[in-house]
Design a protein around this nucleic acid. Structure first.
Lengths: 220, 220
DNA sequence: GTATGATGTGAGCGATCGCTCGCATTTGCT
DNA sequence: AGCAAATGCGAGCGATCGCTCACATCATAC
């Protein structure tokens, strides 16, 4: 009961004109979402804002949710591109530089249409494809986990799964919290330093705050 | 344009019978929100689930948003009571024990109706009184900041504002992420240990990962 | 008992929403 | 130019929603 509306496009735009229509619809959806929020963003309003008829809207998107899903996918994709690119560059760096770069890029990724990002984050759970976003988190966690494994000797935490999970969660969250509650912090280099320091100190470990000390980092 | 609906109760229930009605409405709202989500939780459905007529609902709540706001306020209040109580107990403890206790209580607080919590967190931004929740974060940050100030000599971070902000954000987020993505972790004591260690290592500081070293914790 | 205010009821109004469908216009091809 | 396919249009349908209001029932005081 209560079937979820379809979220895939109705047809693939093939000609130039129709691709422009689809782009206009996506852009308008983003604008209206930011301006009015999800509830008050009606498909009629979106079509009007796009300068397109309501009929055309439903030619390419089978439902309102599909429209929003497309916007989410595009936005998340843009952010993930930034993060993935950086993680590749970072793979060869030692822990401290890598952490700093990761934090920097996380903040940079949050600078892509932050208002839209905020609305989407709020609304994602209500559109069918939340899995997409969870998969992004899981992908990031897996990438970080692989990095930690490769640098095992610099890491002072035993459980790499948990370490990756906590590192990704906390960096993501501190960035997110700063975007929402302390926007001014984002431009301060101190912020990047502190967040990076938080992650590094945890990952490097400490004989006094954890049970064991796997590697010999005692002497510096 | 677009006036926000009122969010305060229409009248204060004075007699016993009416208070039972209000309670039934709040409980039913929580149930329906969890079952159907915000969009599909209509006031008619809520009234029916509460075994109360739609007219009675509007006798006590001027709008759907007011109803949800009341549920939010009650839920946040319950969580904040738990946290506040613990922070008082913790004030006298040294950093490491305090951190562990704070993390433990944060997880405990998230155990209060976690499904409802999830829906509310998603919907809060859309109901007028988001300020309430932001104030909760700010209150927690202020309490932690005061604690850090009192224990200045145990802290190796210069900027106490930022330290409190990052500590609260990251603990809140790791708990939250665990609730949503790794529920099994919540029952493992290791999880509390690791999260606490993360915060402690950051707050205790480290000459190698931050610029200055204010106190003399070099020798252990 | 009966009068009064508090409380509870639910049919249904007006508005809005997501979406369909029959038709008009444009494009690509010959 | 002529035709078929692709694309665009928008009035309006059916459903649902938040909410009102005229009325019924209950509790309390005398």
């Amino acid at each position: 009961m209560a079937r979820r509306p379809a979220t895939s496009p109705r047809k693939n735009a093939s000609q130039e004109r129709s691709r422009a229509t689809v782009d206009a619809l996506l852009a308008a959806t983003a604008r209206v979402l930011v301006r009015d929020g999800y509830d008050h963003a009606s498909t009629n309003k979106i079509a009007e804002a796009a300068g397109v008829s309501i009929g055309s809207l439903y030619q390419y998107f089978p439902s309102k949710e599909a429209l929003v899903a497309a916007v989410i996918e595009r936005h998340i994709g843009e952010m993930m591109d930034v993060v993935r690119t950086s993680l590749v560059r970072v793979a060869a760096l030692p822990l401290r530089e890598a952490a700093r770069e990761l934090v920097r890029v996380m903040i940079e990724a949050h600078r892509i249409e932050p208002k839209l990002h905020r609305v989407l984050v709020e609304q994602i759970p209500r559109v069918g494809n939340m899995e997409h976003v969870e998969r992004v988190d899981e992908e990031a966690t897996a990438l970080v986990r692989a990095y930690l494994e490769a640098r095992r000797d610099e890491i002072g935490v035993e459980d790499l799964d948990m370490a990756a999970f906590l590192a990704v969660s906390s960096v993501e969250a501190m960035t997110h919290a700063a975007v929402l509650r302390r926007p001014a912090l984002l431009s301060e280099p101190r912020f990047v330093d502190e967040v990076a320091a938080l992650v590094v100190r945890y990952l490097e470990g400490d004989a006094a705050t954890s049970g064991a000390r796997p590697a010999m980092l005692a002497a510096e």
